[in-house]
């Protein structure tokens, strides 16, 4: 417990002192979404049609791009070795890192998503499902992305490789996340879809950190 709390506080402090790591994914999210009205058409009806997918894909890419730095600096500075030789199970500090990372990068995406949904001409009744789906989906994306980050941490060309590994694993979350919003737009019941997202979250939260810890061990040469 001491190790969990200490890691959590340290991660929050580190992210706080590197505000770019919080702000950049957020800007990326906003910028990518605002490209679509320019690329497709500013016509509200057309935008509303693609809005669920656009906002979700942008959120997914923002989370994925933020993952690359999750372990890299700790690995370069030797902290990762400390973490793996410490008298606590690696999964404990790893979980703390994931929680801190989601709080600082995932949560801001959740908070701005209604604004972007509105800019994409989503009907107001779909904004709450949008926010909920991103709230339930981004932690899964963070955990699954961390598996890829752990496996590529020591490699030079980590960034693009990470995308190749992780994007296929993101597909279920994307389908149900964007699907929840589409269902809401069509006037259907969203509870069931959100429940599936919640189930995916439960699955990734229970097995994901173990896989991340195993991935870090493998990357250290074990």
């Amino acid at each position: 417990m001491r190790a969990f709390r200490a890691t959590l506080m340290r991660e929050l402090l580190l992210l706080w002192r590197n505000p770019a790591e919080i702000i950049n994914p957020l800007f990326f999210f906003v910028m990518v979404v605002s490209l679509f009205p320019l690329a497709i058409s500013p016509e509200p009806k057309q935008l509303a049609l693609v809005a669920p997918g656009v906002v979700w894909v942008a959120a997914l890419l923002a989370v994925m791009l933020s993952m690359d730095g999750l372990f890299r600096r700790d690995q370069e500075s030797g902290v990762l070795d400390q973490l793996l030789t410490a008298p606590v199970l690696p999964v404990i500090p790893v979980s703390a890192k994931l929680l801190a990372h989601w709080l600082m990068t995932g949560l801001p995406l959740v908070l701005v998503s209604p604004l972007l949904g509105h800019m994409m001409q989503l009907p107001t009744l779909a904004l709450e499902p949008l926010m909920l789906s991103i709230l339930l989906g981004t932690p899964s994306l963070t955990v699954v992305g961390a598996i890829g980050a752990a496996l590529t941490v020591g490699l030079n060309r980590g960034g693009i490789l990470l995308a190749v590994l992780v994007l296929p694993l993101y597909i279920p979350v994307l389908i149900f996340g964007a699907g929840a919003v589409t269902t809401a737009v069509q006037g259907g019941p969203v509870d069931g879809v959100l429940a599936v997202l919640g189930a995916l979250l439960a699955l990734t939260l229970s097995l994901g950190p173990l896989a991340v810890a195993a991935g870090l061990k493998i990357s250290s040469g074990n």
């Binding site: 598996i147 496996l151 296929p168 694993l169 597909i171 149900f176 896989a211 195993a214």
Partner: peptide
């Protein structure tokens, strides 16, 4: 070993992808 871990995660994903698609 790295590829093996990825394939393990991937097998779970294959099943979920099938239903979600």
């Amino acid at each position: 070993r790295a590829a093996g871990l990825l394939a393990m995660v991937g097998v779970i994903n294959v099943v979920i992808v099938k239903y979600s698609v």
